[in-house]
Structures are given as structure tokens and as C-alpha cells.
């Protein structure tokens, strides 16, 4: 069982981020947990931290869709522009309070999105996706 080396949460909702942090901690205390309120900040961090690294285990990234300024989909568009060796290090999950069918379809259609999860995030949910052995990048 290969633990993710890091958890990243991108969401403009402070409280949601708090819940996510607690869930991740309950799942495992080992990986680093980083939360970002600003997607731009998240992207800069990714560029800095992952350009020169070569982690064996991927990073789990939880991404909210409905954010002001840039949405989750906009974030993904920018993420696609990153070099492949960075992208390969991530498993991205859309985390949303939305129940809309079109969001589900959009998530499934996206190349780098592994799945869509409903808020609130819980340790059980993380366990579930973890054990499905979908760490293999698509």
C-alpha cells in the first residue's frame, strides 16, 4: 500500500477546507496536507514543488468546481498546460457540493480527473478511492 506523499485541497471555502484537512488527517497522519483558498497560489506551488521532483507515489488533489475568479475547470485547463512529468504525479478528484449530472459527465470525460466526490469529504471516502487502486495514471 503506497500512501500518497501529499494531499492538496483547492477550495475557496475555508470551512470546507477545514473539514477536508480533518478527514485527511484521520485517514493517515503521514502525508503532508496543504490547503489553498486561491487556485493561482495552488498552481504556483505545484510548479515550484513538482518541477524537479520525481515522486514515486502520486499526490492526491481535491479540487472544488465553484470558485470565484477561476473555476475548477479553469484550474484544470491551466494544469493541462503543465509538463507531463508534473501532471503524472497527480491524482485529481473533483470535490463538489453539486449534484448536477452535467458536472459528473464533465468530470468523467476529463483526462486527468479520476473521479467526482461529494462534500463533505470523509476519511471513509478517501479510503474508498485509495483502495480501488486507481493510482495508475490514465
Amino acid at each position: 500500500m503506497n500512501l500518497p506523499n501529499r494531499f492538496i485541497v483547492v477550495d475557496d471555502d475555508r470551512i470546507s477546507n477545514l473539514i477536508c484537512e480533518l478527514a485527511c488527517r484521520r485517514f493517515s497522519s503521514l502525508p503532508e496536507i496543504k490547503t489553498f483558498l486561491d487556485p493561482h497560489e495552488a498552481l504556483s506551488f505545484i510548479k515550484d514543488a513538482y518541477t524537479n521532483s520525481q515522486n514515486s507515489t502520486p499526490t492526491m488533489l481535491f479540487l472544488d468546481i465553484n470558485m470565484p475568479v477561476i473555476s475548477g475547470w479553469d484550474f484544470l485547463d491551466i494544469f493541462n498546460e503543465l509538463p507531463p512529468h508534473i501532471r503524472q504525479q497527480f491524482s485529481i478528484y473533483i470535490l463538489t457540493s453539486s449534484l448536477e449530472q452535467r458536472d459528473v459527465e464533465k468530470a468523467e470525460a476529463h483526462k486527468y480527473v479520476k473521479g467526482l466526490l461529494s462534500k463533505p469529504l470523509s476519511a471513509e471516502t478517501i479510503e474508498g478511492i485509495y483502495s480501488e487502486d486507481i493510482f495508475i495514471t490514465k
Binding site: 470551512i15 473539514i19 478527514a23 449534484l99
Partner: peptide, 21 residues
């Protein structure tokens, strides 16, 4: 309706998460 439902769901989801915690 989409936006409103989302903006209603969002705090609700949080409330659920918080009460669980």
C-alpha cells in the same frame, strides 16, 4: 436554479461535515 441549489448545498455539506467531526 443551478447556482442557488449549489449555494444552498455548499453550506449544508459543510454543516454535515462539521457535525460529523
Amino acid at each position: 436554479s443551478y447556482i442557488v441549489s449549489h449555494n444552498l448545498r455548499s453550506p449544508v455539506a459543510n454543516i454535515i461535515g462539521l457535525t460529523e467531526e
